[in-house]
Structure formats: structure tokens, C-alpha cells
């Protein structure tokens, strides 16, 4: 096991954490473990929350370059400093600014839309509004599972960091089936968020965040493909 490190690490990358925590996350073995776990989860046939079989361990694994662009891989192998991350968040993860791109699910879903997120094709306007249905679901789910939201996320229980954190907690708790269901249901908004990031001018740091999102999207798509392959009469 150990898939949860992917989600808990990306969760922290999108959250307002302090310098020590950022350095501990990105400057030690933890970051190498994250990259390794990401690469493993992105392999064809990898299953979320399952131990690697002895056979799969000896199979050749594709490098991250096969899943991400060169720029993204380079950015992930050299994470930005805490100062850069803090500056990026002050410009882009803050509300009400022209280049705002808060990683909050409600903002990328049309009001009343529980299913398909809306990708703003070239538009600067975010389609949703704060505290939509996904936020209320996450608030209730967190509460239902006996946990509490930290005050910094009180306005956005559907912040990417919280969704990923909950996914990591589910995996860590052995709730693999629930984790897969959660992964399947929750992350369809990431393409819209990715598009929003790509529209920002700060491309040097955008590559780092888009790389993280692409890891998540790769896992999400891999999982979706896996789920589809198990459907009866899939190709009929």
C-alpha cells in the first residue's frame, strides 16, 4: 500500500502550509516517495489501494515522462520554494482577483449541476459560486465521518486539499472501496481547473501545479478505465 501519499502530498501542495512543513514535504525523502508512488499509480493496470503483486514488481514500469510533459516532470522534480508557493497562492489562490484560480470544486460547477463540471473555454469567468452542492456534501461527509474542518477551509469544504486529504484518510483507513467511489465521483472538475491554471501567465509555477493536477487526472482516468473494463457488455 502507500497510494495515499500521492493524495496527501498533493493536498498539502494546494493548502496554506508553513515554511517548515513545506520544506519537510519537498526537500526530503517524502517528495521522492511521492514521485515514486505517483509513477506507480499511473501505470496501466495499477489499482488504487491494492498491494503490488510480485509479478507487477518485476514488470517494467514506465517513467513519469510517459504520463506528463517534460516541463511538468522537470517542475515536479524541482518543486518551488515556499516563498514562490506563497507568492503564487497570494496571486492565484486568492478570491476576487483577475487571475484567481482557487482550487475549489464549487467554482467549477454550474449551479444545480451535480454531475458534469463546466470547462470555461477561454472565458475568464468561473462558472460556479462558493458553497455549492459539492461543498455541502463535503461538509456533511466530513462531519458524518467524525472529523472536523479546519477554520481556514470553513468556506470551502470542497477545496482540493480537503478532498484529497479525505481520499488519503480513506485509503489509510483501509476503506479502499469507498476511496475508489470517492475518487470516481469527486474529481471530474479537475479538467476545468486545469484549464483555468493553464490560462495563468505565471507559467513557471503553473507547470508545477498543472503537473500535480495531471498526476491526479492520470489516476482518475486510470481508475475510470478500470471501472469501465469491469462493466458487463462494456463494448456492446
Amino acid at each position: 500500500m502507500g497510494d495515499e501519499i500521492v493524495f496527501s502530498t498533493v493536498s498539502k501542495c494546494f493548502a496554506p502550509i508553513d515554511r517548515d512543513a513545506w520544506n519537510a514535504l519537498t526537500q526530503g525523502v517524502a517528495w521522492a516517495d511521492f514521485l515514486d508512488a505517483s509513477r506507480r499509480l499511473l501505470q496501466r493496470g495499477a489499482k488504487l489501494g491494492e498491494d503490488e503483486s510480485p509479478a507487477s514488481r518485476v514488470r517494467l514500469s514506465c517513467p513519469l515522462q510517459d504520463f506528463l510533459s517534460v516541463g511538468e516532470v522537470n517542475a515536479l522534480f524541482a518543486p518551488p520554494s515556499w516563498e514562490d508557493v506563497r507568492s503564487f497562492a497570494a496571486l492565484h489562490f486568492t478570491g476576487g482577483l483577475p487571475a484567481s484560480a482557487p482550487p475549489i470544486e464549487s467554482l467549477y460547477r454550474l449551479p444545480g449541476d451535480g454531475a458534469e463540471p463546466f470547462a470555461p473555454h477561454g472565458e475568464s469567468r468561473l462558472p460556479g459560486s462558493y458553497y455549492g452542492e459539492s461543498a455541502r456534501y463535503m461538509r456533511d461527509l466530513v462531519r458524518r465521518m467524525g472529523m472536523s474542518l479546519p477554520p481556514a477551509f470553513a468556506d470551502c469544504p470542497d477545496h482540493l486539499s480537503i478532498e484529497l486529504d479525505l481520499l488519503a484518510v480513506l485509503l489509510r483507513s483501509g476503506m479502499t472501496h469507498q476511496a475508489r467511489e470517492f475518487l470516481s465521483e469527486r474529481f471530474a472538475w479537475l479538467p476545468a481547473f486545469r484549464l483555468r491554471l493553464l490560462g495563468l501567465e505565471d507559467q513557471a509555477h503553473v507547470r508545477f501545479y498543472v503537473g500535480l493536477v495531471d498526476v491526479l487526472l492520470g489516476v482518475w482516468l486510470q481508475h475510470a478505465a478500470d471501472a469501465a473494463s469491469k462493466r458487463p457488455f462494456n463494448d456492446v
Partner: peptide, 21 residues
Amino acid sequence: SEHAITRRSFLAGSAGVAAAI
């Protein structure tokens, strides 16, 4: 390995959340 920093959860503030849920 999974290091302590990655096990800390925003939701419970510690790695002990697994037991809680």
C-alpha cells in the same frame, strides 16, 4: 515509506485520523 509529514491530515490534525473513522 510514508513519512509523518504526509500522514498529517487537515481534517483531524494528526495521523490518528484513521482510527477515528
